[in-house]
Design a protein around this nucleic acid. Structure first.
Lengths: 228, 228
DNA sequence: CACAAAAGAGAGCAGTGCTCTTGCATTCTC
DNA sequence: GAGAATGCAAGAGCACTGCTCTCTTTTGTG
């Protein structure tokens, strides 16, 4: 019972991890488009066809990397949230936002993989969904905690958007007012717009003090979702 | 003097245009990563090496397509601005934003090319800068026009961001108050965050009425830059 | 210990970007 | 107008890619 059919499984897990690690290294060096199965195999001293025993295709490897990236980012966000545990809502919010930005700057190609243009003919499979939601959940958590007491509200939504707002609230945070759910999703997308623009070079010749600009804008976002 | 050395030049221009057209078609079908010089050449009935007389590399072709995409988007934005000529500032703002979104939905791959992750080892050359700024200029124009009279202001920026805010204002719109410049850049990036999230599938299972959500959020952005 | 399942090796196919040489046609110059 | 210069297309070829197929080796397990 020590390693009954576990020996094989463990070896398999190790090789799988080694492949992902090598792939991640290559991803960081050259970007997703230049990630080559053959190069990964070469680096590991195996022949390329052997690699297909572990990942049925290049896209499957990419999917695995995508999930890992989402998880890594999510973990970072959660750590930042926990570190800012006692702080005021706005401070916790900005802490998480800055963790997202920091992770993105540290892992630009992995960020591009998950928040840039989706890869070739490739639509993110359902598998990535849980990992992808972690950051969002962290942000929701902060807002929810802040709204527990007084129950601040976001800007009112027009009547035409009410049904959608209520639907969103029901899905995301049934205990929050619909306007807050709307504002929250908006802030969420805007946070990543900010990070993407910085990372993808749109701020070149426009924003110099990116850190300061980010901090300020993200604080504004916090106000937009009702945090003080 | 009719077409002395112009015959060659004209033929060259025509072939160049045909190449770009075929490439754009392929881009729309398959995305940037799958754009193949050989396939383009095939479609045009020429051999792949002949294509290198017109574009020195695949990346140069992509750069040309990028510039065209920026121009196409910019033109759309300008048209929307002109069409909403007499309307209130907020209406003009949202009109331009919706034009951006509409163009993105109609040309997803071209949008991904310019606002998604930058291509492989490829940094956008300086050539793309003028075309890239057109949308931004349209937005600035609307804000400037709205601020001509009363001189509304954006949310105040913290002291630490003052120098940066003044630098940004000096570069972008010397006649506008620095806070407005900051708010304007933020709104700009947030607009594209919104569009990118919708286009890249992050709103799946989250936002259903995307049109309505976009309209509302973009109106909020307008308020953020001081438009009423 | 024997065996079946799993993993690796290697060849091969169709495709890619890009280079280089060769032949042809068009243009410019005298 | 004849000859030289130039532009263009074609074709072969190189090094690479993802992926499949077959064959052999390894190895855990009954």
């Amino acid at each position: 019972m020590s390693t009954p059919q576990g020996a094989r499984a463990r070896a398999r897990a190790e090789v799988t991890a080694a492949i992902k690690e090598a792939a991640r290294r290559q991803l960081a060096d050259e970007g997703a488009a230049k990630l080559s199965l053959r190069a990964v195999a070469r680096e590991l001293g195996m022949v390329s066809s052997a690699l297909y025993r572990y990942f049925p295709s290049r896209d499957e490897l990419l999917t695995a990397l995508i999930i890992d990236a989402y998880d890594s980012l999510g973990e970072n966000a959660e750590r930042a949230r926990d570190a800012a545990h006692g702080a005021a809502p706005v401070a916790r919010w900005t802490a998480v936002c800055e963790a997202v930005r920091g992770w993105a700057l540290a892992h630009p190609h992995e960020y591009a993989l998950i928040y840039g243009s989706p890869v070739p003919g490739y639509a993110a499979p359902e598998t990535t969904v849980p990992a992808a939601s972690r950051v969002g959940l962290v942000l929701i958590g902060i807002i929810r905690a802040a709204h527990e007491g007084p129950g601040l509200a976001g800007p009112t939504v027009p009547a035409s958007l009410r049904p959608e707002a209520e639907r969103m609230a029901a899905d995301l945070a049934p205990d929050l007012p619909p306007e807050v759910a709307v504002a929250m999703v908006a802030a969420w997308s805007q946070l990543f717009g900010l990070v993407s623009f910085e990372l993808f070079g749109q701020f070149r010749n426009v924003v110099e003090d990116r850190e300061g600009f980010f901090r300020h804008t993200v604080t504004q976002l916090a106000h937009g979702v009702g945090l003080r």
